[in-house]
């Protein structure tokens, strides 16, 4: 492993707290622990899926990793360079190698700019000396690559549908051939039929350009389809991370099981026992002691409140943050179970 190139992205103990309200002297007493000690790395060409319900901090991870937010603590290494504390101007050379695709295709494109200027903006910023003809050519190429007509540049964003606008956003992100793409729920605002097209587009360009992608989503079916590895987040912490196949066949964390159970099955005749999580995700201002998930976990023991379970390796490349190793968890829908483990016994109802 030592001879391999450094991972494209390495995140070590990332913490991001947002202070809320400010006291008399600008001092705030409370803070939102949006991200509370997250570590992972993404190898070159890999797609890492990041899942979790709303409020789990996955978007904050994406934004902090790109240094659109400054982390409270921890380290971010991009292509082996520590970018944790760089200033805006020091970050500029890295910006062209890391890009972002947004969730909302309506707010992510400037309504007053023509599409050719939107897509060409990265060129105008990073290669101001480029001849106009070459820039036009590259913009048209980028539009063609994402499956839009070459002359789309003459029009304004509001003239396109949601799926097309997402393609424009992807064309802009890929303009400078970045190394890393953070896709923050890139399809969750789209119709299901369009989602498939955009996912396919992302996988195509990834194969073509050798992109590394951090794919943030809450839709497990999409994440499972796109990702090589999946990391599951809950309340600002990683609770489980494994390669996609292993995670879906053999989840080891009760939260992962609950997420699997909540995903709709595309077959209305199937009746299954759903694990319904009661209540909302606890407040990240004042998280529960010990394991943050224990308040909603049906397997919780008194010991779970005592201390925060560390993320530990339970199999090669499979990490989880749960005290209990004795659980039999239900895999993804009807995925075949890992033969190494005994067959499922009926899980007790809560």
């Amino acid at each position: 492993m030592t001879a391999s190139p450094p991972p494209v992205l390495e995140v070590d103990g990332l913490v991001k707290h947002f202070p809320i309200g400010s006291g008399l002297f600008g001092r705030s007493r409370d803070k939102v622990r949006a991200v509370d000690g997250v570590s992972f790395s993404v190898a070159k060409g890999e797609v890492l899926g990041l899942v979790g319900e709303s409020g789990s901090g996955k978007t904050t991870v994406g934004r902090t990793v790109l240094r659109l937010d400054t982390p409270t603590d921890g380290a971010i290494r991009f292509l082996g360079n520590d970018i944790t504390h760089l200033t805006r101007s020091q970050l500029r050379p890295f910006r062209r190698q890391m890009q972002l695709v947004f969730q909302d295709p309506f707010s992510s494109l400037n309504p007053r700019m023509r599409v050719d200027r939107i897509v060409g903006a990265p060129l105008a910023i990073h290669e101001p000396g480029m001849a106009a003809a070459e820039r036009t050519q590259r913009v048209e190429d980028a539009l063609a690559m994402v499956g839009l007509p070459r002359n789309s540049g003459e029009r304004f964003p509001h003239e396109f549908s949601g799926g097309q606008r997402q393609r424009i956003g992807i064309a802009r992100a890929l303009m400078l051939r970045p190394e890393l793409l953070v896709a923050d729920e890139p399809v969750s605002a789209l119709d299901v039929s369009i989602q498939a097209q955009v996912v396919k587009l992302l996988l195509d360009v990834r194969a073509k350009l050798g992109l590394t992608i951090l794919f943030i989503a809450h839709d497990l079916a999409v994440v499972g389809h796109v990702s090589d590895r999946v990391a599951v987040m809950y309340l600002g912490k990683l609770v489980e991370i494994a390669d996609t196949r292993t995670l879906f066949r053999d989840p080891r964390h009760p939260y992962t099981e609950a997420l699997f159970s909540a995903a709709p099955v595309p077959d209305p005749t199937i009746r299954r026992q759903r694990i319904v999580l009661t209540g909302d995700i606890p407040s990240p201002i004042n998280p529960p002691s010990g394991c943050a998930f224990r308040t909603r976990c049906r397997y919780a023991l008194p010991a779970c409140a005592a201390e925060v379970p560390p993320l530990r390796e339970v199999a090669k490349g499979h990490l989880k943050a749960c005290l209990r190793d004795d659980l039999e968890l239900v895999p993804w829908q009807d995925a075949p179970r890992d033969p190494a483990r005994p067959p499922a016994v009926a899980t007790p109802a809560p």
């Binding site: 659109l68 707010s107 400037n110 990265p122 910023i125």
Partner: peptide
């Protein structure tokens, strides 16, 4: 708005974000 964040993520100079976006 996201398009301002996008400009920031592109590494656009402040002037660009203020006056063009």
């Amino acid at each position: 708005r996201d398009f301002a964040v996008a400009a920031e993520a592109m590494g656009a100079p402040d002037r660009w974000i203020m006056f063009k976006e």
